[in-house]
Simulated assay, not measured.
Amino acid sequence: MKKTIFLLTLPLFLFVAGCKTQNGYAPGSDAGYAVGKVLDMRGNPIPDAVISATSTLSDHKRLVGTTDTNGNYRIKIPAGAWKMSAELERIYHGRRFQLMLHPDHPEVFTGQDGVVCNFEWRLYGPKANQPNQYYGGEVKITQNESSQITDIENIAFTFTPISPRIDGSTAQPETVHCGPRGTDEFARFPDIPIGQYKITALYQPSGQRIYLRNNTGGAYSTDGSVVAEFNGTAPASSRINGMILEFKEQN
């Protein structure tokens, strides 16, 4: 493992970043180094993000650095083919979350040329080069044995944030539907921003209220709503950054 050498001045970083092409790579701009900046979705710099350069020949050959107080990083890269990744750890409502960051240059590069690779902390959206993987948390929907509903996709679930999300941002309520049976999104929402929510549900064909509870522990409330949040990245957890809800028609 080699120590990260941080950029000494912001103007130097801006000069390097200004040389990059549309895909984030600037041959010769800083040969032999991986450099870049980490921001959140509002453009704020993120210190202490963990940046990794991994050899394409061996996942065990990895160089690691961290961002400075301005969100910048700089890592010396030896010869060979490499790819960049980054992650961030956050404690949210007492739970630990390990979060992947989005690269603007996910392609392989050579250590001889170096790379400019910036990262963004995204709360939702598909992960780079990882099919069917998302930056948000997964909500799994289960059905109480007393429920008679067969078309779960016709239940409208409304997620209303009741506190700032994991990055400190606020958001408006969002109503979503899961996919029909036989699809990858049946009985699940794979990409909900990590946060704490009051969740309500309505069976749209009849307008009937649906009652919800946290399936990892909790009771049904009289108004059908449930306050729930994601479980984080606990080592013993069977569902990383996930949430499980159970529903029924009658309380």
Rank of each mutant, 00 (worst) to 15 (best):
D68L: 12
W121V: 00
R188D: 02
T216R: 14
R188S: 09
N72P: 00
G168W: 09
G111C: 04
T66R: 11
V115W: 00
I77E: 06
A86Y: 02
L99G: 02
P193S: 05
R181K: 15
T66H: 10
N23K: 03
I152N: 10
N251Q: 08
P103T: 02
Y203G: 01
Q208W: 02
S147P: 07
L10S: 12
P45M: 12
P11I: 05
L212T: 02
L101N: 01
Q148I: 09
D151G: 01
I155C: 09
Y73C: 04
R95A: 14
E145F: 05
E229F: 08
F247R: 05
V227E: 15
I166G: 07
T67Q: 06
D223R: 09
D151Y: 06
G43H: 14
P11E: 11
A228N: 06
R96Q: 10
E185K: 14
Q208P: 00
R42N: 15
Q112Y: 12
S29N: 11
V16G: 00
D184Q: 13
K20E: 12
T110I: 02
L7N: 09
M1E: 12
R74I: 00
S163Y: 07
T9S: 15
T142K: 13
I91H: 09
G182Y: 13
Q112H: 11
L63D: 07
H105Y: 14
G32P: 00
H93K: 13
C117N: 10
L245R: 10
K61N: 13
V115H: 05
P27C: 11
G195Q: 01
T9Y: 12
V176R: 15
R209S: 03
Q250M: 09
Y197H: 03
A26M: 06
P205F: 10
A86W: 04
E138F: 03
V139W: 09
S238L: 11
E229A: 02
P161A: 03
A234I: 00
A53V: 13
A49V: 15
E138H: 05
Y33F: 15
V64Q: 11
E153M: 08
T9N: 14
P78C: 12
K76I: 08
I75Q: 10
L7Q: 08
A171Q: 07
T67P: 03
F6R: 12
P190M: 06
D59M: 05
N70Q: 13
W121D: 03
